[in-house]
Computed example of a mutant assay.
Amino acid sequence: MSCLSTFSASVAFALILGVSGALKDGDCEVCVRFLGSFYESLSEGRVPFRGADIENALVQRCRHAAGKENRLCYYIGATSDAATKILNEVSRPMSHHVPVEKICEKLKKKDGQICELRYDKEVEDLSPEGLKKLKVKDLKKILDKWGEACKGCVEKSDFVRRIDELLPKHAPGAAERRTEL
Score class of each variant (00 low, 15 high):
residue 51 G to S: 14
residue 41 S to C: 04
residue 41 S to D: 14
residue 84 T to R: 13
residue 148 E to Y: 00
residue 125 D to L: 05
residue 165 E to F: 05
residue 110 K to M: 13
residue 115 C to E: 02
residue 166 L to N: 05
residue 74 Y to N: 10
residue 29 E to G: 07
residue 76 I to H: 01
residue 133 K to A: 14
residue 44 E to C: 03
residue 64 H to F: 13
residue 63 R to S: 15
residue 139 L to R: 00
residue 16 I to G: 07
residue 68 K to C: 04
residue 179 T to K: 14
residue 111 D to I: 03
residue 172 P to C: 13
residue 154 V to K: 15
residue 34 F to Q: 02
residue 116 E to G: 09
residue 87 L to E: 11
residue 163 I to E: 00
residue 133 K to W: 05
residue 119 Y to S: 06
residue 128 P to T: 04
residue 7 F to M: 06
residue 122 E to T: 15
residue 100 V to A: 03
residue 112 G to M: 12
residue 81 D to I: 11
residue 51 G to R: 03
residue 99 P to V: 07
residue 154 V to G: 13
residue 92 R to M: 12
residue 62 C to N: 06
residue 101 E to Q: 15
residue 97 H to D: 06
residue 114 I to R: 01
residue 130 G to F: 01
residue 84 T to I: 14
residue 142 I to F: 02
residue 98 V to A: 05
residue 18 G to E: 14
residue 80 S to Q: 12
residue 21 G to E: 12
residue 107 L to W: 00
residue 102 K to F: 11
residue 15 L to P: 03
residue 41 S to R: 10
residue 107 L to Q: 01
residue 153 C to S: 09
residue 13 F to H: 09
residue 159 F to L: 02
residue 79 T to F: 04
residue 77 G to P: 12
residue 37 S to C: 08
residue 68 K to R: 14
residue 19 V to Y: 10
residue 84 T to Y: 11
residue 86 I to A: 09
residue 35 L to P: 00
residue 23 L to E: 14
residue 103 I to E: 01
residue 52 A to L: 13
residue 129 E to W: 07
residue 27 D to R: 08
residue 106 K to S: 10
residue 36 G to A: 03
residue 111 D to T: 03
residue 115 C to M: 09
residue 95 S to F: 03
residue 79 T to Q: 15
residue 163 I to K: 02
residue 67 G to N: 07
residue 91 S to M: 04
residue 44 E to N: 07
residue 12 A to I: 08
residue 177 R to E: 08
residue 72 L to P: 01
residue 63 R to P: 11
residue 60 Q to H: 12
residue 111 D to Q: 03
residue 21 G to C: 12
residue 75 Y to K: 07
residue 117 L to I: 06
residue 38 F to I: 03
residue 25 D to V: 05
residue 115 C to V: 10
residue 161 R to G: 00
residue 161 R to Q: 12
residue 162 R to W: 01
residue 33 R to L: 14
residue 3 C to Y: 09
residue 67 G to V: 08
residue 14 A to Y: 10
residue 82 A to P: 05
residue 55 E to S: 06
residue 147 G to C: 10
residue 79 T to M: 14
residue 70 N to C: 04
residue 36 G to V: 05
residue 63 R to E: 15
residue 59 V to D: 01
residue 92 R to G: 02
residue 38 F to S: 00
residue 58 L to P: 02
residue 172 P to E: 07
residue 121 K to P: 10
residue 71 R to P: 00
residue 155 E to K: 15
residue 129 E to K: 12
residue 134 L to W: 01
residue 136 V to P: 00
residue 9 A to F: 12
residue 65 A to V: 02
residue 99 P to I: 05
residue 1 M to P: 10
residue 133 K to F: 08
residue 66 A to I: 09
residue 51 G to N: 11
residue 84 T to E: 15
residue 59 V to A: 09
residue 60 Q to M: 14
residue 161 R to M: 09
residue 111 D to F: 01
residue 45 G to N: 13
residue 168 P to C: 08
residue 115 C to T: 05
residue 111 D to P: 01
residue 130 G to N: 06
residue 170 H to D: 03
residue 112 G to L: 09
residue 16 I to W: 12
residue 115 C to I: 08
